[in-house]
Design a protein around this nucleic acid. Structure first.
Lengths: 337, 337
DNA sequence: CTGAAAGCGCTTACAG
DNA sequence: CTGAAAGCGCTTACAG
């Protein structure tokens, strides 16, 4: 099959100017709203372009202003099923505000510290700024972007200095959840999951520690199992916590939580009668679980929107907060009753 | 925090030309490989731009050629957890070939038949072509794109005429799987799942029917349960199939299969001892199931790559197949032993 | 309030 | 084989 291009020659700013007997300058000003222009003239132009459905060529506009009106989004390629919905939802938030400001999203993918595509996008001048959907303790994307000096924002926290970042307030969320559990007379709350080198794990642990400190209770190190990410390790951790007779098992994320719940079922330990369970993150994979699981809830779409707003502000030279922390909700359900 | 732009003035084609004492034309020709140019001259230019890391401004290049070097990808916004990995993997395939041809992906999202974003992207001249990741029986995106006459390709089949499409060969895949099961002496194979109005459902059913026809066996309509997409409906279907004592339950996709397996477990029906199970689609959600599930396997990354190749060929005015069907694998596992 | 002209960084007939 | 010049479709000082 041969592709046939339709023959409606694209209408340009010159066409509009000619048709109206004004200059291109005037048309341009009517559209952009910049520069002085008579009200009547502007309205004539606006009416005409609306009627004839004229749309400026973004490329030409970009070239004249040395801007692309694109923002690059760097998406992880080595995803796991669990955090895919997070990225998708966040992306929707980003897209929503991008479009509202007449920007588009240029998508690029890459594995951990593999940023050839990112470099290509930047070097070809295809974007005005970048959003990193994920960061690492040692992060070559961040280092590269800092070096070339292009505006960028990270989703999630990072320890690199001078990086603009937007994150959920994991520390305070965890502190509050644990505090509530402590108030409900649970005294011995075990912790399992998370990679120690992830910034978010540190935040969550800090929240846990603070809650104990505020309550004037001592920490028991032997019921804290960080770096348990494989199934076997999680099962071992659960066994030890059961031996130690913890009141509650708090899971660093919901993938871990799922495995904890499976293990408990295997062992015929009833939730919440024999042990309570809570998760520091909620997602659809826990949605339909019986009993329902107490967890922290974050507005991921809002996170995406905030990230994008921040980036666009930077691109337009406005001042932005170096670090923005978003809210959270503690959702109490059956599993801690 | 105030953003500081680094002061390394971008190097342009004029800078290169001046530095080498040649014309911009020559530099352009050295890079593009178009037009006559002396070997020695070309190599001098190439060496210089490599050393100074010069990269042409894609915007300017695009404007001069009236091209954007972007392709638009329309991603569903109303996703389900199950098909998210499909889109992600397909996107990776698309991205891989796009980058290799120096194109970028402009991402746009939309719900069923909501294509304001798509229109915006096209009207702003931000893309050279479009990939639709999903199609509908009545598809306004397709109708719009046909009207404006921009090159586009759909992932999956459609009944619209003159639409370039790439799909997995669902019909023959299903035919082969069912034929194999029939050869294994299963005679009564029940069917459950799928939305009748989806093109893919029709293809799968046709494969099933053909297999029976080839085997010279009669179809039993009362063990075919299409349009069972809610949990309750699937459970009812399973109950009826068990009553009818089918040899095997074939699931139209793996989300349905998951629910069928749950139901069977609830009813204490053992797989494969009491009833066999197979799925017409594989994905990670079935991966860890015990027993392992017989299913059809498709190379989704290859699908994405093919789609993108096809679109780029169209953009460059080459002839392309109107319909491309990709291969499949039948993966026999425990559940049909 | 409006316009002529230069410019953004490339490509590409055309001429030599 | 190489280059001067026009052009892609916009924006924006500058002048009036």
């Amino acid at each position: 099959m041969e592709y046939q291009k339709e023959n409606d020659k694209k209408i340009t700013i010159s066409d509009v100017a000619d048709a109206l007997g004004v200059s291109k300058t005037t048309v341009s000003r009517a559209i952009s709203g910049k520069g002085r222009i008579g009200t009547e003239t502007r309205e004539r132009v606006l009416a005409y372009i609306k009627e004839h459905n004229y749309k400026p060529n973004a490329l030409a506009k970009g070239l004249a202003q040395l801007k692309t009106y694109n923002i690059g989004v760097m998406l992880p390629e080595d995803y796991t099923l669990v955090d895919l919905p997070f990225f998708q939802t966040c992306l929707m938030g980003i897209g929503e505000v991008a479009v509202s400001m007449d920007y588009d999203i240029l998508l690029t993918m890459g594995r951990e510290n593999e940023n050839t595509q990112l470099m290509r996008m930047v070097e070809n001048h295809k974007v005005d700024g970048i959003i990193l959907m994920r960061t690492f303790t040692k992060d070559e994307s961040i280092e590269y972007l800092q070096k070339v000096g292009i505006p960028f924002v990270t989703v999630g926290s990072t320890n690199y200095t001078d990086v603009v970042q937007v994150d959920n307030d994991h520390k305070n969320a965890c502190r509050e959840l644990i505090s509530i559990l402590l108030m409900k007379k649970m005294r011995r709350i075990g912790i399992v999951g998370g990679i120690e080198s992830h910034v978010v794990t540190q935040s969550r642990l800090n929240g846990y520690l603070e809650a104990y400190e505020n309550a004037g209770l001592a920490i028991e190190k032997d019921i804290i199992f960080v770096n348990a990410d494989r199934e076997a390790m999680i099962e071992r951790a659960v066994e030890k916590m059961l031996e130690a007779k913890v009141d509650c098992i708090a899971c660093l994320d919901d993938a871990v939580c799922m495995q904890v719940l499976n293990k408990l079922r295997k062992e015929n330990v009833r939730v919440p009668e024999e042990v309570k369970v809570a998760s520091f993150y909620d997602s659809s994979i826990l949605d339909s679980h019986m009993p329902s699981i107490t967890s922290l809830s974050f507005n991921v779409r809002e996170l995406g929107m905030t990230v994008c707003h921040t980036l666009l502000d930077m691109i337009e030279g406005k001042q932005v907060e170096q670090r923005t922390l978003l809210g959270y909700e503690v959702i109490l359900k059956e599993s801690t009753k």
